[in-house]
């Protein structure tokens, strides 16, 4: 549970960073926030949902979902 607690604190810090990042330089904002989001999502998937230790053949779906969504969002921000 120490790990979970540490990760919880980490998630809160990353959230604060995400929120504050809105005031930092515009060009840097999107990649920074997306990386934060990806890390947060992966932490929740691996350690909170517990998929890191799952043995099912279906366990790749959730991380793949996160990758596709974050990747897709990143792509659309290169369009404009």
């Amino acid at each position: 549970m120490k790990l979970a607690t540490a990760l919880w604190v980490l998630l809160l810090i990353l959230t604060a960073l995400t929120t504050q990042s809105a005031v930092i330089a515009a060009g840097f904002l999107v990649p920074f926030v997306l990386v934060m989001t990806y890390i947060k999502g992966q932490v929740v998937i691996d350690h909170f949902m517990g998929l890191r230790h799952a043995t099912s053949r279906l366990r790749w779906i959730v991380p793949a979902w996160l990758l596709v969504v974050v990747g897709g969002i990143a792509y659309t921000f290169t369009l404009s």
Binding site: T18, A22, L29, V44
Partner: peptide, 11 residues
């Protein structure tokens, strides 16, 4: 966790 940055933050 995805919805918040997407709709509230990123621009």
């Amino acid at each position: 966790i995805v919805l918040f940055p997407l709709i509230y933050v990123m621009h």
